[in-house]
Simulated scan of single mutants.
Amino acid sequence: MAAPPEPVAVLPALRTLLGGLRRGHAVSVDASGVLPLALLAGATAAGAWSAMVGFSEFGVLAAADLGADLGRVVVVEDPGSQWSEVVAVLLTSVELVLVRPPAPVGGQLARRLVALARRNGAALVCAGDWEGAQTRLHVASSLWVGPDGGAGHLRGRRVRVEASGRGAGARPRSAWLWLPGPDGTVSGADLEAIESAPAELDVAG
């Protein structure tokens, strides 16, 4: 029996949650925030050709700030009513497709696109709801860090990310991350420092 293909790489800070993005699987991620863009950054930094569908110019620039290699990214900012057809074509061409659909994706369409990803060895990440997603990533809590008790210029954001799923990914797990850190990168965050630091604003979600 042939060994399963190597997953699409993620940033080192995310490996305890995912290991990697499994090809032929769908991952559902919170639509707000930069977590989906961090997944794109890890994939392209490792050399994977990727695509962004339905993200604004701001989202593209934010991905670059997190370390994404935009030279390896196909960007379809506004696919309009043809977004599912666009995603289908890209799943035959690149290793990772990151999509922000205009509405939650479910039923027959979700299954068809995942089957296409499986056939072509691509990973699919949805910023928003995706029926039947094998893995779900959720920012459970968020701590903005800044000087003067959290006032003034915000230096970084510490988040607790929870992962859950089905099958092999069913065991819930979580990790504290800088997303992004003071230097703009994504890295692990020390839990004890988070709980004791006085200069932080606690914002859920």
Rank of each mutant, 00 (worst) to 15 (best):
L37H: 01
P147F: 00
L116G: 07
R155N: 13
V89G: 04
F55A: 03
D30T: 02
D30H: 02
G181K: 09
V145N: 00
G106A: 14
V76N: 14
G71H: 08
R155V: 12
L177P: 07
V53E: 08
E162G: 05
G128T: 12
M1D: 14
A189M: 05
R22S: 05
L191A: 13
R155W: 06
G107L: 09
P180E: 06
R112E: 15
R173S: 03
L177M: 06
P12R: 04
D190P: 11
V34N: 02
S93Y: 00
W49D: 13
D78S: 13
P182K: 09
R136A: 07
A63C: 04
L91R: 00
V89N: 02
W130T: 11
R15A: 08
G169D: 14
G149L: 12
W176F: 08
P7R: 15
L143A: 02
Q82N: 10
A31L: 07
A64C: 04
D65H: 09
A26Y: 02
V186W: 06
G181Q: 07
A189T: 04
E162F: 05
A64N: 09
A26D: 00
G80Q: 12
A151Y: 10
L113R: 12
P36N: 12
H153R: 14
E57Q: 13
E195W: 11
G128V: 10
A199N: 15
V10I: 08
G42A: 09
G152S: 13
E131S: 11
A48C: 03
T135R: 08
L18G: 03
A3G: 15
G71F: 06
A175K: 14
L11C: 10
W176Q: 09
L18K: 06
S28F: 01
V159F: 02
V10A: 07
P104Y: 10
G165Y: 00
T135G: 08
G150M: 11
A175C: 14
A199F: 13
A31I: 06
T16Q: 06
L35M: 01
A197Y: 12
G132Y: 01
A41E: 03
G106D: 13
P102D: 07
A204N: 05
A13C: 12
G169L: 11
G184W: 03
V105C: 10
T16H: 01
G121N: 02
G24V: 03
A68L: 10
E95P: 05
A2N: 15
S187G: 06
A64S: 08
A175F: 09
Q108Y: 07
P4C: 14
P5T: 15
L179M: 11
G80N: 12
P7T: 14
H153D: 12
P172D: 05
V76M: 10
G150W: 09
R171H: 10
A38Y: 01
P12M: 01
S93E: 12
G188A: 13
L143Y: 04
V203D: 07
G156L: 03
L40R: 01
A103S: 13
A127N: 13
G156S: 00
R118F: 01
V86G: 11
E95M: 00
A127H: 10
V53A: 07
